[in-house]
Design a protein around this nucleic acid. Structure first.
Lengths: 333, 333
DNA sequence: CAAATTTGTAATAACGTTTTCATTATAACA
DNA sequence: TGTTATAATGAAAACGTTATTACAAATTTG
């Protein structure tokens, strides 16, 4: 049905091996023969069939990316970075969502076993350290935007603890002493790291950590609003709230505003990630910028490095964050 | 190196054909043999190599999705819908971004020719109707969220014109007569369709269409702000602005607020898409909801239908929108 | 100028499946 | 009991590449 390498060989009057050599520039071919082959290719409109190639070479040049969800909108920028690096290295990205389900994630990782993909990067994972280490023995994998304690796997994140520390220190330097935090529960290590940064900053300035100032829920922005209500019902409500994600910050602010509070004046709110909304929101959201594009780019570059060098070396790369000041955080009164 | 179907056959004491039959339940196999095969599979930890399968069956069960960009944040929900439908039909989604570049898009569509993917869906496209029609002769393709005049290709969109008509009619019914529009220039047919809806609504109520009330730029939210400034500098500034996307609406509102205007009171703003930000924004953004998840689901289901029935039938499916009222639109004074 | 190397090429064996074809064993029928 | 349908299997041929091997021709070397 379709035109194959055989047809090209016949039309060019050479062997299939020679056609393959021209296609891959893998060995010396006489100019005359090469020209005949190229002419035949053009004439017949030949396209190499990658299924044959993949089978023979036992590689697909596809990297699987598993998202826990597509809610978290800063994944966009990470994916862009991944795709940029992938394309530079001759790879494509196969994107899937696991809905944060362990079984779904495992099913998708099956693509490593059935050779549909050459490697996988997980933007957060439900797998345990043991599972990850086992997987890492046989396959090229990486984790991104999240880390797993005890997993000796290629990992790329921002420095979460230090970023949160910087965010909270900024609040303190503006005179805030009553600072609450909206975090998440569950196994996300990054949230815990950001909590640690929060605590570290408080400790440094001899501000006692109050349990009542710590809220933990899901990533749903709605939880920001819920946290706000709880905080404000306290006998001593906070003057500033640090949220471990921008969406939570937006949810917090939305509820604050609709309850009649003035952001910046009555309450300062700081986020984390620097998604597009931070700039567009009213008022602008002060936040810690994650170098999302660079995170994506780095994780793929490092993964490809592992593949090319045929090694499964685990290492944790931490990229730099940046404090971005906008209107949602103001001096304490 | 790896355990193959041959090893399983040997271990089970049957032929590879029988193993294959068990694997695919493609023909009757005696219970005894099936059990032996299954035991061998478990024992050896066998995983079928899809590269072999793909080559033999000449299919990959992968569908390519080409995004013009990842900015447009409502693509998220569409991708989710696509993945849901794909997974139900035994397909995976290979995601790429073209950056709205014709050559990049063409290069990615090369995956159809080299058999890396079985089909492709484009969320907007730079290709001409002729190019699309030609592509559609040989391959399974679809367009989504966008249409191309004269292309007889499977297309799934919301009813753009009718949606915009509804949005503008809502403004009129609230007493607005001076209504501007923020649209985009370029070949996006959906923007034009929404412009037509805008004009249709004005015509119906005998409101003259003024060229000065029409702004066209890119999708960048920044253009919303630019449009706002231009509109407000007019001798007769509008009392309401209809933006053909939520991000443009957010950009418009941000500039309005920072310029001292009160949204809803001084100026009403309406968006289109209903991305997550609409609910979180301050104030909430009135908009036309696109059934993004369903659009994604539908386009994949229809595409798979085409594949299964071995046909390349073009058709345009329009899904229903919904007007969602929030605070950004209020009665005219 | 013979020997040694390099260059260009063809033939062919993989890669791991699925599927067709042929064959045997079993069951059903008259 | 022979004949015919059915069930269960194996052997082998694809699918379209790339890579290895082998060999002839051309070129360089001593």
């Amino acid at each position: 049905m379709n035109v194959t390498i055989k047809d090209v060989a016949k039309a060019a009057g050479v062997s299939v091996a020679t056609v393959s050599r021209v296609l891959n520039k893998s060995a010396t071919v006489s100019e005359a023969a090469a020209e005949q082959v190229n002419n035949a290719i053009k004439e017949l409109g030949y396209n190499p069939n990658f299924l044959g190639r993949n089978l023979r070479k036992c590689e697909t040049n596809v990297i699987l990316a598993i998202l826990p969800s597509t809610e978290h909108s800063f994944y966009n920028e990470i994916i862009k970075g991944m795709q940029s690096a992938a394309s530079e290295n001759g790879y494509d990205i196969l994107l899937c969502t696991s809905n944060s389900s362990h079984s779904t994630e495992t099913r998708m990782l099956g693509m490593l076993y059935n050779r549909t993909v050459d490697a996988a990067v997980m933007l957060g994972t439900q797998l345990s350290a043991e599972e990850l280490n086992e997987l890492n023995e046989k396959h090229y994998i990486a984790i991104c935007c999240e880390r797993v304690e005890g997993a000796n796997v290629l990992t790329v994140t921002v420095d979460d603890e230090s970023g949160a520390y910087t965010a909270v220190k900024n609040l303190i330097s503006l005179g805030h002493r009553k600072i609450a935090i909206v975090s998440t529960e569950g196994m996300a290590r990054s949230s815990k790291d950001r909590e640690h940064g929060y605590i570290k900053a408080l400790n440094e300035f001899d501000i006692p950590v109050r349990e009542k100032y710590i809220y933990r829920g899901t990533y749903d922005p709605y939880n920001g609003g819920k946290a706000f209500e709880q905080f404000m019902a306290l006998p001593e409500p906070p003057t500033a709230i640090f949220c471990i994600s921008d969406l939570l910050a937006a949810g917090t602010m939305k509820k604050a505003i609709s309850s009649g509070y003035k952001i910046g004046e009555d309450i300062s709110v700081c986020g984390f990630d620097n998604i597009q909304m931070c700039e567009l929101y009213n008022p602008g959201i002060t936040t810690i910028e994650q170098p999302a594009f660079e995170i994506g780019k780095t994780v793929i570059n490092e993964l490809v490095k592992n593949i090319k060098q045929n090694q499964k070396k685990g290492r944790h790369i931490k990229l730099n964050y940046r404090l971005i000041q906008r209107e949602s955080v103001q001096k304490a009164k």
